[in-house]
């Protein structure tokens, strides 16, 4: 996957360079007369340099393998056809919506009910509409969501004494 490697290599090279630069800027505590080999930027700086070098090798290898020649494109190289793209985006949207949007803003059980219901319903809706089972599936999704919201809450809070978000 030369095209993906070229992008990733560029990213690692940039990350390595930024890490090395930031490490260089870290304090050396010279006024405290600390040993110069114990400064906090030493190891992250070296890691940055290694990451920069590995990124450069990856980039060069990708170019040699034809990353700059016309080809299938990044999505094609990674096997992201329209169907897979759609499924991945839907899963991302639902999970991020729950973890970043709902959790912490709504009560845990309500947020979990909404998320599980939406996830099951949206992923099964096409198949079940075709089979004429939409209403039954929606009812099952609601039941599953309710059970999960109640059971997870009960198991974590009551059995294992763990706090919920």
């Amino acid at each position: 996957m030369p095209r993906a490697d070229l992008w990733a290599g560029t990213g690692f090279l940039a990350l390595g360079a930024a890490t090395a630069a930031e490490s260089w800027r870290m304090p050396r505590f010279a006024q405290l007369e600390v040993n110069p080999w114990s400064v906090p930027g030493l190891v992250p700086g070296l890691i940055g340099v290694v990451l920069l070098l590995l990124g450069a090798v990856l980039m060069l290898r990708a170019v040699r393998e034809g990353a700059l020649r016309p080809g299938a494109g990044l999505a094609g190289e990674l096997g992201f056809d329209a169907e897979r793209r759609r499924r991945t985006l839907l899963a991302l949207l639902l999970t991020l919506g729950y973890a970043v949007g709902l959790v912490g803003r709504l009560p845990f059980r309500t947020a979990t009910f909404l998320f599980v219901f939406a996830f099951v319903a949206l992923f099964r809706i096409e198949r079940d509409m075709a089979r004429g089972l939409l209403l039954r599936e929606l009812a099952f999704a609601a039941l599953e969501a309710l059970l999960v919201a109640l059971a997870v809450g009960f198991v974590f809070e009551r059995l294992f004494y763990v706090r919920l978000p």
């Binding site: 729950y98 998320f115 996830f119 099951v120 999960v148 997870v152 706090r163 919920l164 978000p165």
Partner: peptide
């Protein structure tokens, strides 16, 4: 998978 994600969320928080 949604159940697993709920567990991941609670697990990360706990």
């Amino acid at each position: 998978m949604p159940v697993i994600f709920v567990l991941c969320t609670v697990g990360a928080f706990a």
